[in-house]
Nucleic acid binder design. Structure first.
Lengths: 135, 135
DNA sequence: TTTACTGTAATATTTATTATTACAGATGAA
DNA sequence: TTCATCTGTAATAATAAATATTACAGTAAA
């Protein structure tokens, strides 16, 4: 996984802390300490996935699109992961070698198993759970 | 995780296929289709961890340092992972924000949990198991 | 003493990530 | 109506990480 998971989780946690009022990308970016455009980009992704609502224009900003107890860390994980956790087997091994010939397939199967296990755990933790750890 | 896991797993799987004879880095690199120096670098790491034995000089090469059923994928995982699977929370969030102040710690705790789960699964699969999937 | 290996460092190249800049479009308020 | 403030998004630049390459010293067998 990459640095997007912490960022997405941070964003959603912040939003869960303010029920009604809209939060700006500047504020969010300031809390995470990243560039506002980068924050907006990730928010955009999260919005496309139905996790965040936005309002444009003056005094616009963001809120959660659903209750914090209805968003799990599995949603976050899937939002930011383009590839399986353990990375992709991106070698092109020698097809004349019995091992090389099949190893990518076998590694993919393993990764699928591991992903399932991770998702199960992540699916058991909601944003509400996570956010409740903070003061 | 990065591309090193597939490479290390490939190497150990290959070695498990030849009981006694030594295998050269050229052959190994050829099967994986990577540079021999890169293969030797990973092998060197695996050797330092007691998973591979090597012999220098003419007709030198590599063998497993222990039986394939005594090496698990958790060993491989730990050999190649310097960081937790999900990456490190490497932002330096705003310490004046209650969330920013503590989020790295909380994310680290989560990652530790997830790592444990992955290691449990990986620890249940040996190189022998994995290699037996191949013809 | 030549040949075929490993061991390792130094460096180059490529790829991925992250940051920055810029600006059009939307909305509310003076 | 026009100004200020915000989102949305693209284009680009900068940085960091992964991977590949080259080179060669050291070791051991023949």
């Amino acid at each position: 996984m990459n640095g997007r998971f912490p960022i997405a989780l941070h964003i959603l946690t912040l939003l869960s802390k303010t029920e009604e009022e809209l939060m700006s990308s500047d504020y969010i970016a300031g809390s995470i300490n990243i560039n506002p455009a980068l924050a907006r980009k990730e928010i955009s992704n999260l919005r496309n996935l139905g996790l965040i609502s936005s309002k444009e224009g003056k005094s616009g900003g963001y809120t959660l699109a659903k209750a914090a107890e209805q968003i799990t860390l599995a949603d976050v994980y899937q939002a930011v992961m383009s590839q399986p956790v353990l990375g992709v087997a991106k070698n092109t091994p020698n097809p004349d070698c019995p091992v090389g010939k099949q190893i990518n397939k076998k590694i993919d199967e393993l990764y699928t198993d591991l992903d399932k296990i991770l998702l199960k755990k992540l699916g058991s933790i909601t944003i509400e759970d996570f956010a409740n750890q903070f003061d």
